[in-house]
Design a binder for these strands. Structure first.
Lengths: 218, 218
DNA sequence: CGAAAAATTGATGGGCGTCAAGTCAAGTGG
DNA sequence: CCACTTGACTTGACGCCCATCAATTTTTCG
């Protein structure tokens, strides 16, 4: 386990909020025009007042927690069409950052439209189910299984196309899977070497042997 | 990572449901008299119809998932006063079992009382927050930090008494923390040796040096 | 193009899993 | 009451997976 801090990696971006002419927590009709957020900008941080409900239009978002020494765990990625930002209390407990150029719609929970209100509980329960599945991955699977599960998860969430576009860096993947970037890279290399995947570039993965990948995810 | 199955450990209990004269999913007023569940009895299993909302009266419950080879990850323990059983879909995805003699109240979600209905979203969000925190523990903390965090979590959830009663076995703790029973036992021994805790017996822990324990949880 | 960041690859060591033996507590039957 | 069994827990020896440290290579972007 890395004891050495890695906050230095984050401090340049942490604290750098996205800026916009749009109000961040609109009090109006619940839905607003999309807001553009540049890569690595903070969407919210622990302590910020919660209450916004964010829908990803394009790009991608990472939600994570930090230990005091800088170790980071990404609890979820959010891709286009997905919703995030709900919190138990009245302040956020996590960081949320754009992983790349990202478009968001923000609704205020207090004034959210009826049809969205009804979706909050199913949405929270879906997040919970995904978190439980991820606990199984982090607690009980080895590096190969973790990466395979990650690729299959993205495969499904991107609509089942064998060409997977990764909106996140190797470090994001590592901090999602509880590994290091070196280990993630080595597993990618081994999958490539075994003809299970092809890498057009480091952000573009093609699944060549789906069955093998499924087997590996255990 | 353990590849060898451990299903043998569970099969004797798995499939053994608790039996009662009370209907399992009452369709009446939402709340029912408490139901007694013996140790290691299955409360629900994957595939079972969901919809019940369970409140722990006494004892304790483990909720977990299995990999095909038997590796187990406990996603949460539920202690007296706590609620569990909500699911995203219409069938359960996890196992829930009593860890010891346990009393439950079961309410049906469809006919749940108004005051309980309003608690469902906060409850789901609280579970989500706890799962996210647990992801940080499993993904980024070492064995000592995991056990320390576990003891502090139980300390707080049992009301802040320095005497902690463990309703779960070492194997449950290991499967909650993503470790083996041997490692859990070794960490307990080291904490004992360093005068951080005292063990009256294997199920009863006294926190002697709270500050040290907090430091260790990082 | 040239500098900086990201990703890959290699060498090495440590933490935790695995295997095995030993200890302890609770229960059973003679 | 005591030998015996059984299961839970503890302790020890050893090995492997992955973190760490380091050096390239590749990609990105001014």
């Amino acid at each position: 386990m890395s004891i050495q801090g890695r906050l230095d990696t984050f401090t340049p971006t942490a604290g750098t909020r996205f800026e916009t002419d749009e109000p961040r927590t609109p009090s109006g009709a619940g839905q607003q025009p999309p807001i553009f957020v540049a890569a690595d900008r903070v969407i919210y941080a622990p302590g910020d007042p919660a209450g916004g409900i964010y829908t990803v239009e394009f790009g991608g978002v990472r939600v994570y927690r930090l230990l005091t020494d800088g170790r980071r765990q990404i609890s979820a990625f959010h891709l286009p069409g997905e919703i995030f930002g709900l919190e138990a209390g009245d302040t956020h407990r996590c960081f949320a950052e754009a992983m790349c150029a990202t478009g968001l719609r923000i609704a205020c929970r207090r004034s959210v439209r009826k049809e969205l209100e009804a979706k909050l509980l199913p949405m929270a329960l879906t997040s919970l189910t995904q978190a439980q599945q991820h606990l199984l991955v982090l607690g009980r699977q080895n590096s190969m299984e973790r990466v395979a599960a990650f690729l299959l998860e993205l495969f499904e969430r991107q609509g089942g196309l064998p060409q997977i576009e990764l909106p996140m860096s190797r470090m994001d993947i590592a901090d999602y899977l509880g590994l290091t970037i070196e280990t993630v890279s080595r597993v990618f290399s081994k999958l490539k070497q075994n003809q299970v995947i092809r890498l057009r570039n480091s952000r573009r993965v093609e699944i060549v042997r789906m069955a093998a990948l499924c087997d590996m995810a255990s």
